[in-house]
Nucleic acid binder design. Structure first.
Lengths: 233, 233
DNA sequence: GCCTTACGTCAACAGGGTTGACCCAATATG
DNA sequence: CATATTGGGTCAACCCTGTTGACGTAAGGC
């Protein structure tokens, strides 16, 4: 096929049904498809049909399915981080970043579930990394630590957000069954075999809730403690 | 197809090539397939070929691919936690738990990636929760905190492990591309636009590495600090 | 208005999961 | 032991998927 996928295209030729294709329109349509009919609704053929073009026309814009998925992921990141500017408090700024990313994922749960664990190497992602590492540098961490700690931070945020998105992407019936299981399954346990669970039994229903903020706060606590241990600047 | 998938089968009939099928043999062969020929080697047709039976014979044992994956996941959990016993040091024990779960997932990335965000409230998981919460109780946390903090801990472990497994489950080509991107794309960036990335440039290739232990250690640090803040028992 | 070529279209291939019909042999029963 | 039942292995078929190479048309530079 020798698809070249040029950066900017000059000859814009309408499809049989009159639509003018663009990378932007394709990504946007893909997100709509996934949002409406689930992740399994995203296929080259269906996307082509939704766009009103031959499926293989997409290969003029993306090298393959994987490339398209990365483009979708990057748009989610971009939308989530739109308008974000780091403030004076680096801990609060990282926390804000985390919550934004999570909100972006939850806005497109099904798309996020399939694209979450990828490195998009596109503009929006690069900008986010720049911002995050910059915050850790202002916290006083030496560059080697800043990079490694940012990785731990963002991986935690991304994987937690992905898990939440995946849960949201489940069919409602299955999601409710999972939620109930914390209450049902853990109720009639033998106190002798499960003493600890028995001791915290009143708290168990709360375990169906999200741990996202709790986990992020714990991580930021540890980061703040390490920054303090560096000594005052 | 109205596959009934009975619990115990009574008529065991050898396949054309003389093999006696069983749920156990199928799961075992599936794991071997994945281990030997990579994650993408798992398909109904290939599994049938490896077993020496018609691919559709598997539908007598599992309702579909999904059912098979869950059976595989169940075995992974059991194997990972086999022989684990909590020690005196609660931090070290939680760390051990985390590493076991991760190892179990990474031993079978494809299966783990497919079933990671799925909730299987089975015996092995309940025992793990009992153990984990017990450890936090011995650390001195009140029961409400123990439950919530354990949730944050195990969610971090599980979602990180799932992310790693998902990465390992990628086709080799995409996996290598993701790995290279940290070195290639992030190298030739404009220093004016990306000052922080430029500052930590030598560290960037290391960002292709796993952040699992770093993240777990940060979390355990925060937990230990909070336990200390409770005052000595 | 011509020439080049970008890009939308088409046909085809290899592989996937899943189904319903078929039929034989392993078991239950007499 | 013989017969009836049915579990379960097999086969052909269907429709899906991503991806390719060839083809031709219309858009834009000159």
């Amino acid at each position: 096929m020798t698809t070249r996928v040029p950066q900017e295209r000059r000859r814009r030729r309408p499809t049989r049904s009159g639509v003018l294709l663009s990378e932007d329109l394709i990504v946007q349509t893909a997100l709509r498809l996934i949002g409406e009919h689930g992740p399994e609704a995203l296929s080259v053929r269906r996307l082509g049909a939704a766009l009103g073009c031959d499926p293989t026309a997409l290969y003029r814009y993306f090298h393959g399915t994987d490339d398209l998925v990365l483009a979708i992921a990057d748009r989610i990141i971009g939308d989530a981080m739109a308008g974000f500017a780091p403030g004076d408090d680096w801990v609060a700024s990282l926390r804000d970043m985390a919550l934004r990313v999570r909100a972006g994922y939850l806005a497109h749960p099904r798309a996020a579930a399939m694209a979450a664990h990828r490195v998009t190497r596109r503009r929006n992602e690069i900008r986010a990394v720049e911002t995050g590492i910059g915050l850790l540098l202002t916290a006083g961490f030496p560059s080697a630590d800043a990079a490694r700690l940012y990785l731990a931070f963002i991986d935690t945020v991304l994987s937690h957000a992905a898990a939440e998105a995946a849960f949201q992407a489940l069919p409602p019936q299955q999601r409710e069954a999972d939620r109930r299981s914390w209450r049902d399954v853990y109720q009639g346990l033998d106190p002798a075999t499960y003493p600890s669970l028995t001791a915290v039994r009143p708290e168990l229903p709360a375990m169906a809730d999200s741990s996202f903020e709790q986990a992020v706060d714990l991580l930021l606590e540890a980061l703040a403690a390490r920054a303090r241990a560096l000594g005052p600047k």
